[in-house]
């Protein structure tokens, strides 16, 4: 698998990272290097091994349906740049 500059530009857009045109080729090379390195994993024969995303084998821990959190709007908004009337504010997003 190999990434061209167009794919890198697309990924940058999805990640909301502004990448100048002249940097795309260099980034593509770097990303391709990382991918080639990861692709070495393909050399391992995983026939019959179920895919897993973690090493922990016990089930997902669950929590009772109890309200024991929240009720701290001041803390939630403490780092917001321009809170107003208890809301976060952001530049207008209109549909």
């Amino acid at each position: 698998m190999s990434l061209d500059t167009k794919a890198v530009a697309h990924i940058a857009t999805l990640a909301r990272i502004r990448v100048p045109e002249q940097d795309l080729a260099g980034l593509a090379k770097e990303l391709n290097g990382i991918m080639t390195w990861v692709e070495q994993l393909n050399e391992v024969d995983t026939t019959g091994v179920e895919p897993m995303t973690g090493v922990e084998q016990r089930g997902l821990p669950q929590r009772p349906d109890v309200v024991n959190d929240g009720a701290m709007p001041d803390k939630i908004l403490a780092n917001a740049p321009e809170p107003a009337h208890g809301f976060f504010t952001v530049p207008k997003v209109v549909e």
Binding site: D65, V66, V67, D69, G70, A71, G86
Partner: peptide
């Protein structure tokens, strides 16, 4: 009563950001 992955309340119509956990 509580959210899917946190212990904050789900009730409708509360003050803004008053039912929010970290």
């Amino acid at each position: 009563k509580a959210k899917l992955f946190s212990g904050a309340a789900t009730a409708f119509g509360a003050e803004p950001n008053s039912q929010v956990s970290l």
